[in-house]
Each structure stands twice: as C-alpha cells, then as structure tokens.
Design a binder for these strands. Structure first.
Lengths: 224, 224
DNA sequence: TTTTTTATGATAGTATTACTATTATTTAAA
DNA sequence: TTTAAATAATAGTAATACTATCATAAAAAA
C-alpha cells in the first residue's frame, strides 16, 4: 500500500496545475531552490525562467504572481506536515507523547518518508521559517482568506488543537496555543540562528534542539 | 520635569536625521499614514512624496529605501514602548503586576501619555502588528543586525526578560519567553482579527481583550 | 493519419518601482 | 551680504511585474 503524496492544493492558487506537466513541476522545484537562495524579496519570475530554462510568459501561465507561487509551496508543505503528523501519531495513544511528536516535527527538518518527495525538504524548511508569514501579513488578507488559501494551515492548527484538548480537555485556548506553537517554532528557530539575544540558546547549541526543548517545556508547563 | 520623547534611533538607519527638519518629520508622519492605508508592499516613495508634497529625490535624502524607513518607524515605536514600560513599572514592586502591565501594553494601543507624541499611535499599532516581522525576515538579516538596527527591540526583550526572572528566578528561557510574548501578541491580534479560526476568540469579542487574557493565562501558567 | 486542440517558446511591449544625477531655486547660517 | 545647505524640478536608468501576439511543437481527437 502506498501513501498518497499528491497533497491537493486549492485551484484558486494556480492558473494551470503545476503537477500536470513536467514544466509545472520544474517551476515549483526550481522556485523552492531560488527562494531559498535569494529570499522572497529578491525572487522573481525572470530569474526563475532562467533557472528552469523557460520564459517568463510560460511561468505566468501557471501562477498569477510570485505571492501565489509562495502560497502554493507553503500549502504543499502544510499538507505534507499534516500527513506526517497523522502518520506518526496513528499508533500513539498517549496525548503527551503525541504533542512531543508534533513539536519535534515543527522544529526539525521534515523526514522524507518515502522516495516520493519531489522537493528539497531542507530548503522548504528554511522557506517556511523565513517566508511563511509573508503570505498572510498583507493588506489583501480578507480577500485571499475567502479564497480558502489558508485551508491547509488551518487544518494543521485544528489537528494540533485537538491533541491539546485530549491532554487538557478544559483548556480554553487550544487553537491559539496551537497557532502560537507553529508560529513560535518558526520565529524561535529564526531568532536562535540570527538574533540569538532574543533567545536563551547557548553559543554552540543546535538551534532545532534548543527550540524543541523550549517549546516542550512551555507547552507542558501550560498544560500540566 | 519633562520626559524626553525624542527616542534616539541609530544613525545607520537614516541618511539625514528626519527629526532635524519639518520635511523630515512630515516624511515619517505621512509614511505612517500611508503604510497603514496601503500596506508595506504597496507603499513607495513616489506615493509618499505626493502625500508630503515633495519629491522622491528629497525623500531619498533622508532614507536609503523604504525598508529602512520602516525600520526607523518601528524603532521609534519600540523606544516609546520601552519608555512606557519603564514609566508604568516604576511604582510597581509586584513582578506579577509588572508582567500584567507589560502584557496590557503589548496587546493594546499605546497611550499617548503626553501631548508630545508626534505620530498616529493607532496607525502605528496596526503597522507593528502587520509589518514588524518584515524588517527581520530578510536575506540580509546578518548584515543589518551588525548595524545594530534591532537594538531597541532587543532592549525591550531584555527588559521583559528581567521581569520574568524576577517572578521566576529559575526559569530557563526568559528571553525566548519574552520574544515569544512580543511576537505572539502581534500574530494573535492579527489572527483574531482576520483568521479567527486560528484562535479561540468569540465572534463578538474584542480582539485586544482576548489576546490579553490569552497571554496572561499563558504566562502565568508557565511561570506559576 | 490527419486535423484540431493545447502547451510552450520567442519576442515585444507597457506600466510601475526603485532608484541616481543635474541644475535651479529657496532658505538659513556665517 | 555672501556663502552654504536644503529642497524643488526635471530627467533619466535599470529592474520588476506583468500582458499580448504569433509561431511552432506536441498531444489528443477525429
């Protein structure tokens, strides 16, 4: 039995489904490399076309703009992360262990469970840390939210909120704690790598390990 | 006795000190209005010049680019916030009450203590919530950090970390908890206004009040 | 197999953005 | 009252974010 790794991404996000052609897949794959290398602000379709060996016009046939391409990439990531959460949790009954597993996934590079992962997970991880908030911190938030662009993220948030409630059925803020965990996992990873003084990471300490222990400590203090 | 409300902002941030002329002050004042209205991405020096009644070239004599103008605005905000924290805390000895005061400041529009505040505090507040992470989530983070661009933010983070340690001297992550509080205050305010399902805010509940109670609950569970 | 559709490539072009440079004019300081 | 500094006015460049057109290649339908 094989796991379905074509995590569906809402159609309002793309013009032509990039999964439907080799060019489409190359666009997404190279976009991940390029955004990782130059950052979202310096990333554009001209550079991407050069990398892919196609033209700007062809890329515009798949995505309306670079913002929606980033949304597409992040949604793929959130889908895959939720798949991994579901997969790793299915034989765990202890909600405390469930939460630890989730925190580990949130703070480490995602494992490539099968040979089927098309994208560079390590790059994706950095993109999620550095660029993910840029998809929602925009003036057009209400319009793009209506287009169900954040479904994957909300689904993941709900999944984690359910685990929180399993552990602490009376806790009043399961969704806020869940979204706080996700967002804090990103900004603490970013801070402990680039702005160490905003954290308590030791000079030689590994960033992922630090954030894992901080978040575990936080969550279990909150829910004890 | 008067309070010094010219919070100093590092010189590497501007070319000419905007506080040194009426044009400079207008540039900052109108920039705040414009960023509030159109959002950082749609904000540019051409539109700003039109609002101020000057030319693009003149604005470029004050700020190298819009990113550094945003940095300037945010640093003013962080300085003012730290001033308010210090001011409101000076007669409080109970660390628990101190922390509550800080959380209230983080989650509400800042008060205009004196008639001296030059900028629209309500707009500034929204800018901080929506745009502040964009100043550090950039590829150039390490270079701009060396230019001490984040001093004000780090100072505030340290101040809050000290209060955390007063309340819980053995807590291992005072700086991380402090930066988590600041960042979470922004994203939970944003989420409870625009992506409610990522929080547990009630339909008719006030966003600021909700985030205050959530963060107080969180912090005192962590530090009890 | 031929026709038709669809996808891509090649090329060009426009509007906007993010600047830089130059010169004239106004304002303030010496 | 001369000189210096700040600003306005104008122009221009390179890059970005697209849109449009047409030719060609590949795939699907007839």
């Amino acid at each position: 039995m094989e796991y379905q790794l074509n995590f569906s991404v809402n159609d309002t996000i793309y013009i032509r489904d990039p999964e439907s052609s080799e060019l489409g897949r190359q666009i997404v794959r190279k976009a991940i490399e390029l955004i990782y290398e130059v950052g979202y602000e310096h990333f554009n379709f001209k550079k991407l076309a050069l990398e892919v060996g196609t033209t700007e016009a062809s890329i515009y046939r798949y995505f309306k703009n670079k913002h929606l391409l980033l949304v597409y990439i992040l949604n793929w990531y959130w889908s895959y992360l939720e798949f991994l959460v579901m997969f790793q949790l299915k034989n765990i009954s202890d909600p405390q262990l469930k939460l630890k597993t989730v925190i580990h996934l949130l703070t480490h590079e995602l494992p490539e469970n099968t040979g089927k992962i098309k994208y560079n997970i390590s790059y994706l991880n950095q993109i999620v840390i550095t660029e993910s908030s840029k998809v929602y911190l925009v003036k057009e938030i209400n319009e793009i939210n209506q287009a169900q662009v954040f479904k994957q993220f909300k689904d993941l948030c709900n999944t984690i909120a359910d685990i929180i409630l399993e552990l602490a059925p009376d806790y009043q803020y399961p969704h806020s704690l869940s979204s706080t965990l996700i967002e804090t996992s990103h900004n603490q990873q970013f801070f402990s790598a680039h702005l160490k003084r905003l954290t308590d990471v030791k000079t030689d300490e590994d960033s992922s390990t630090y954030v894992t222990t901080y978040l575990e400590d936080l969550v279990f203090r909150v829910l004890r």
